[in-house]
Amino acid sequence: MRMFELTAALLEENPLPIKKAADKQQISVRAIRRLIAGQLNEGALFNYQITTGKIKRVHGFGLFTGNQPEIIAALFDQSHNLSLLILCMKQPVLSFSLLSDTAYISATTLHRRFACFDQFLSPYSISIDRRTYPFVSGNERQIRFLLFKLTAFLLPALCDAPALLYQHFLDIHTLRQQVLYATATSITSGKISPDCYVPDYYLTNEAAYLFLWKQLLAQETFFVPAHEAILITKIAASFIQDSDAQLWANNLSQIYQIHLVCALLEGNIFVFQPVVLTFSDTTVQLIRSFLLQLPHYEKLLKKHPELPMLYECVWQKQSIFQPMFTIKNTPPDT
Results as ranks from 00 to 15, higher is better:
residue 112 R to G: 03
residue 242 D to A: 05
residue 270 F to Y: 06
residue 249 A to N: 12
residue 39 Q to I: 08
residue 265 L to P: 12
residue 255 I to L: 08
residue 244 D to H: 09
residue 35 L to Q: 00
residue 297 Y to T: 05
residue 107 A to H: 15
residue 222 F to G: 07
residue 288 R to V: 12
residue 122 S to T: 04
residue 124 Y to C: 02
residue 208 A to R: 09
residue 244 D to E: 10
residue 249 A to P: 14
residue 247 L to N: 14
residue 3 M to S: 10
residue 308 P to Y: 03
residue 242 D to V: 03
residue 296 H to Q: 13
residue 137 S to F: 13
residue 65 T to P: 15
residue 13 E to C: 13
residue 278 T to R: 13
residue 247 L to C: 11
residue 255 I to G: 08
residue 72 I to P: 15
residue 221 T to H: 05
residue 232 I to S: 07
residue 250 N to W: 09
residue 329 N to H: 07
residue 150 L to W: 08
residue 232 I to C: 06
residue 331 P to L: 01
residue 151 T to P: 14
residue 212 L to C: 07
residue 146 L to D: 00
residue 266 E to W: 08
residue 161 A to H: 15
residue 29 V to E: 00
residue 228 E to F: 15
residue 7 T to W: 07
residue 294 L to M: 05
residue 238 S to G: 05
residue 34 R to N: 10
residue 253 S to Y: 06
residue 282 T to E: 11
residue 265 L to C: 03
residue 328 K to D: 11
residue 257 Q to Y: 08
residue 312 E to F: 04
residue 268 N to F: 02
residue 149 K to F: 04
residue 23 D to H: 10
residue 263 A to T: 03
residue 75 L to I: 08
residue 40 L to I: 12
residue 25 Q to G: 02
residue 87 L to V: 12
residue 102 T to I: 03
residue 173 H to R: 13
residue 30 R to D: 03
residue 10 L to Q: 00
residue 119 Q to E: 03
residue 329 N to A: 06
residue 322 Q to A: 11
residue 24 K to H: 09
residue 131 R to A: 08
residue 10 L to V: 01
residue 55 I to N: 00
residue 137 S to T: 15
residue 215 Q to C: 11
residue 280 S to I: 08
residue 56 K to W: 14
residue 279 F to N: 04
residue 219 Q to S: 07
residue 103 A to R: 05
residue 134 P to E: 00
residue 135 F to V: 07
residue 168 H to D: 03
residue 132 T to D: 12
residue 120 F to P: 15
residue 208 A to C: 06
residue 101 D to F: 06
residue 24 K to I: 10
residue 277 L to H: 12
residue 97 S to T: 08
residue 116 C to P: 13
residue 108 T to M: 09
residue 256 Y to A: 02
residue 92 P to G: 00
residue 58 V to K: 14
residue 279 F to W: 04
residue 270 F to Q: 02
residue 215 Q to N: 06
residue 276 V to L: 08
residue 134 P to I: 00
residue 4 F to P: 12
residue 171 D to M: 10
residue 54 K to T: 07
residue 205 N to K: 04
residue 297 Y to V: 07
residue 238 S to H: 11
residue 148 F to Q: 03
residue 228 E to P: 15
residue 177 Q to F: 15
residue 253 S to G: 04
residue 259 H to C: 08
residue 176 R to S: 13
residue 102 T to G: 05
residue 87 L to H: 10
residue 295 P to A: 01
residue 91 Q to G: 04
residue 106 S to M: 01
residue 65 T to N: 11
residue 124 Y to E: 02
residue 169 F to V: 00
residue 3 M to P: 15
